[in-house]
Design a protein around this nucleic acid. Structure first.
Lengths: 137, 137
DNA sequence: AAATAGTGCTTGCATAAAGCAAGTTCTTGT
DNA sequence: ACAAGAACTTGCTTTATGCAAGCACTATTT
């Protein structure tokens, strides 16, 4: 977690880019955050169709970055459960801003108008509401 | 601008990822938004050291996406000026959220404590203030 | 206990993208 | 006309991604 990777600069935008600036990482975070996906197999079913080697690589990397944690389900040891750490959960405001921007500019967006309006009208409240649903672990 | 690229899904997070989900695009947007850089040569001087072919490719792509626009300075036709469109300027909240998150988790961050506090304390006000500085074109 | 199936990967190979150095074009200034 | 600066472009090497197949471990079924 303490600079596992050499960084090109100490710019905060660069830190974000080096953490999840690729074609797949944010989709995994999305699945964990909004789609209640938690297993390797779950991620494979997402509509963007990530390949298995890339998925394994990104999960490992996210773990090294302290964004995701991995645990074996003790009552069924063939199941591995992935979840977001606090660092990962703190990406929520970014994810909502991304959704708002894409909702505004992508004519084909699948984001519902209702959800986009909740983001636009009272983002802080929405953030609190979503976080409240995370309190029960 | 109207789906120049085939997309893997209509998910808003995926739209964002396909727009700027790579190692360089957000750094160019950062330079345009916060560093007052506007020429090809300006971008080359940033500390992450983008290579010329990638820079040319990303600028072209950003233009196709409607995020950046390109114009030739008529009083010096060897100078090309790049700037953000409204779609690009609308990335400001995302950039601030990225900065906040990185400022929180990157011990080496170059983001100033003062700026991070302005983001944390009153983001909406900060956004309005930054946008006000853009009103004078 | 042996065979079957499910989950979570790993490996090998082909294709695509990124990185690096050098070269080219167009414009301007002398 | 020549030199210099800005904005790319090209060729080549290295790295990352994509795809299909295979493997290990656990659990279930017979």
């Amino acid at each position: 977690m303490t600079d596992t990777f050499p960084s090109r600069s100490n710019c905060p935008i660069n830190y974000a880019v080096e953490s999840f600036g690729d074609k797949w990482t944010l989709l995994i975070i999305r699945d964990l955050m909004f789609k209640a996906k938690q297993s390797y197999g779950d991620f494979l079913t997402s509509s963007e169709k990530i390949s298995t080697n890339i998925l394994a690589d990104r999960l490992k990397r996210l773990e090294e970055l302290g964004i995701v944690m991995k645990e074996v389900n003790e009552s069924n040891r063939s199941r591995v459960i992935y979840s977001l750490t606090q660092k990962g959960l703190d990406l929520l405001p970014i994810m909502l801003e991304l959704t708002e921007w894409s909702g505004k500019y992508d004519a084909q967006t699948s984001a519902s108008q209702a959800f986009l309006e909740r983001i636009a009208k009272d983002k802080q409240r929405l953030i609190r509401e979503i976080r409240a649903t995370w309190e029960y672990t």
